[in-house]
Design a protein around this nucleic acid. Structure first.
Lengths: 122, 122
DNA sequence: CGGCATCCTTTTGGATACTG
DNA sequence: CAGTATCCAAAAGGATGCCG
C-alpha cells in the first residue's frame, strides 16, 4: 500500500507517476493493451499525437519496461511495439480509469457547464 | 466500455482525460480521497507543487465536479477542499493505479537502469 | 490563510526537412 | 516506414509582490 495522506518526492512511485501520468502515455498503453501495433498505426489510433511526441512517449514507456520495441527486417523496415507483461499489468487499473472517464463524460460535462456559468456570473 | 483500439479526438473521454491525466491532479485526488484538506496542508502533502499549480489544478478538478471548495468564515479565512461523490468514484481506479506504481517501482527502476545502459553502450 | 497578477525562464510541442 | 535533427511558437511553471 501507499503511505496514506501524503506523496513525498522521495516516494519511489513519484518518478514513475511523473513518467506515466500524461495523456499520451496512458493512451498508448491503452491501445497496445489490445494488441501489438506498428508506429504509424499507433499514430493514427492516438489521434492528434505528433510523430515527435509519439516517439518520445514510446521511448519513455520502453525505458520503464512497459513497452517493447521489435524491429522486423522487412523492406521497408517495420517496427512493432508491444506491451510487456508489466505493461499488461498496469493496463488493468488503467483501463478501469479510462472506462470511468468514458462512462462519466456526460456528468462531467454538466459539471463543467455549471461551473463555467457560476464563474461567468461574477 | 470504451470503443476498443482507438481513442478519437471526438471521443468524449478525451477532454476529461486531458484534464485528469497529469501528475498533480492524480496526487491531489489521491490525498483528498483520504479526507478533507485545506489549501496549505494540501500543498505540503503534494510535496513539490507550487502554489500556482495547486490553485490551477484545484480549479480544474472543481470545474470537472471532482472536488468541491468550501470557504469557512473564520479569521483568518480557511478554505477546505473535499472530494465529491464523483471524485470519490474515480479515486478507486486511481488508487489501484498508484498502488501498482508503488508496488512496481523497484522493477521499473531495474528496467530503467537496463535501458540506460543499453542506450549508453551505443 | 488563501489566494490573484505579473514577470520571466524553462519546457513542451508542432512544423519541416532529411535519412537508412 | 520509422524515425532523427532543427527551428520556432506556445504553454507551463517558478518567483515575487500584493491583497482581503
Amino acid at each position: 500500500m501507499i503511505p496514506p495522506f501524503r506523496l513525498d518526492q522521495c516516494c519511489p512511485s513519484r518518478s514513475l507517476l511523473a513518467d506515466l501520468a500524461d495523456k499520451w502515455s496512458l493512451m498508448i498503453l491503452y491501445v497496445l493493451s489490445h494488441g501489438d501495433c506498428r508506429f504509424n498505426e499507433l499514430k493514427r489510433r492516438c489521434e492528434g499525437i505528433s510523430q515527435k511526441s509519439l516517439t518520445q512517449s514510446l521511448r519513455r514507456l520502453e525505458r520503464n519496461g512497459l513497452v517493447s520495441r521489435q524491429v522486423l527486417d522487412t523492406s521497408p523496415v517495420a517496427v512493432e511495439y508491444r506491451i510487456t507483461p508489466m505493461g499488461k499489468d498496469v493496463s488493468t487499473p488503467l483501463k478501469a480509469l479510462l472506462s470511468w472517464a468514458y462512462a462519466h463524460s456526460e456528468e462531467v460535462e454538466r459539471a463543467r457547464a455549471a461551473f463555467d456559468q457560476k464563474t461567468a456570473a461574477k
